[in-house]
Design a binder for these strands. Structure first.
Lengths: 258, 258
DNA sequence: GAACGTTGTTCCGCATTGCGGAACCTAGCG
DNA sequence: CGCTAGGTTCCGCAATGCGGAACAACGTTC
């Protein structure tokens, strides 16, 4: 159990969690009476809590034995945890090495459920002019290189939702025309990388490449960003190659077969 | 949500589960205010429930952003679900084919936390003399072929605990002598299969073979059982081969490298 | 620096929600 | 049939969980 200052929390929720953990101590199904004895709680309390957990899919009842066991909803929720942990742990060393090699700032980015881009890891450049809190901050995908990569491999319907929601302008180079963005995303898919030059912020440019999981889905993007004065056309070509190489290394470690 | 008759369940547990599921709708971290809006509950209620979930490890807080996300305990719990589901789904077709081929009853068995054997899947023989509810019923491992297999590959200390707890007699052929059982388990390890002849019930014999996962651990056993009058010595040899073949097929599908 | 807005955290009085005991129901066994 | 075991339902009660409000901390703007 996590230690936490003496905040009052619902006892019934604590008890429900204790029930889930009791299942974690054995591979067998458990009955109401088993759990009642293990947790020293009355059968009716156990039953009431199990019923709530069952309705939520966190436990299920084996109809043959009437005993209970953990349910499939846990697998769905845990999958999200694993996706995050895998990405951070697998990608971490590659991102670090990349930041050392290119001497620019490297980010690992994902798309949120409401189609924003957030960074979930960051390795700053030694040349960092300004280091603001970019982890967890939401960005519009069309204005950042990693967002272009993530959009490029989304289902068409979802891209159209993003377009329909509007493309806010941040600089005079931001792409705000849906037709032009569609063209840009097609280019990204063809090339396997994206470039954004001063589209979010003046003086800031970046390149990005996709990370692909074992099922072939693009689940994240690696980007390299720096001040535009350093990122010349020649330099951008170099960084693209480095980003792509790192993206492939992470992808292979996630089980990508390409 | 599962539908269930109008039993009264703790609202606070339902709300806690709703919070967990809200995280399932996005890959981003969520704040107290986010969740308050999504679930139309007051911030203080959300905070109270999140604190309980955090104490249980089901959610965690990102210190950089103070937002919350699903926690690692879910992965641990879900692993147990996956183990069960993988076994049943992966092994199912093999067990079915095996039951058709050998025309005897085929079982898939695991060890419980208190060192009993339970069947988690069963394909009955067309010759079934008597079909009682064997799914989920606990058996002493020393008296059944699948139990011998599962014991044979346990750590030595755990085997000694089983022996120390006693070896009840079910028939006059049950092994009740610890020394003799140790010898039997050594034989199982050497041969890669187990035979039990009328040791649980007179007139019932069986053979079993291990199922090995991607880490090389024996996680289950496949057994073929039938009435002793049908399971002659020649027949047992045939069934051993079939069980071993099926066990290997399932093992390979679970990622076993052997 | 001050003011403001945002968001996570804490506190407290109250009423309704969750509780535990007991009864009920079902299945299996002798 | 009676008994046991174990999951399920019901009910009166008091304490638990609630929601509103205040608080603390941080970032932004002027």
């Amino acid at each position: 159990m996590n230690e936490r200052r003496s905040a009052s929390v619902p006892r019934s929720v604590e008890r429900a969690i204790a029930i889930l953990k009791a299942f974690g101590e054995t591979t067998a199904d458990l009955g109401v009476t088993d759990l009642s004895q293990r947790l020293d709680l009355p059968k009716s309390t156990i039953h009431r809590l199990l019923t709530a957990l069952e309705r939520g899919g966190l436990v299920e009842q084996n109809p043959a034995t009437e005993k209970y066991r953990l349910g499939i909803e846990l697998v769905r929720l845990a999958g999200l945890v694993l996706t995050r942990i895998d990405l951070q742990q697998v990608a971490g060393p590659h991102l670090y090495a990349l930041a050392q090699a290119c001497e620019e700032t490297v980010n690992l980015s994902i798309l949120t459920g409401d189609d924003k881009v957030i960074n979930i890891a960051r390795f700053p450049s030694p040349h960092m002019v300004r280091n603001v809190g970019w982890i967890g901050r939401e960005m519009f995908p069309h204005s950042v290189s990693s967002g272009k990569v993530l959009l490029a491999y989304l289902p068409k319907e979802r891209v159209e939702c993003v377009l329909a929601a509007g493309l806010p302008r941040f600089t005079n180079r931001t792409i705000t025309d849906p037709v032009r963005l569609r063209g840009e995303l097609a280019r990204v898919r063809q090339q396997g990388y994206a470039v954004a030059q001063e589209e979010l912020e003046e003086g800031l440019s970046a390149v990005a490449a996709p990370i692909v999981n074992h099922e072939g889905h693009v689940v994240a993007a690696i980007s390299i960003s720096g001040p535009s004065f350093r990122l010349t056309e020649e330099r951008l070509i170099q960084l693209v190659e480095m980003a792509r190489r790192a993206g492939k290394a992470v992808s292979r470690q996630l089980g990508w077969a390409g």
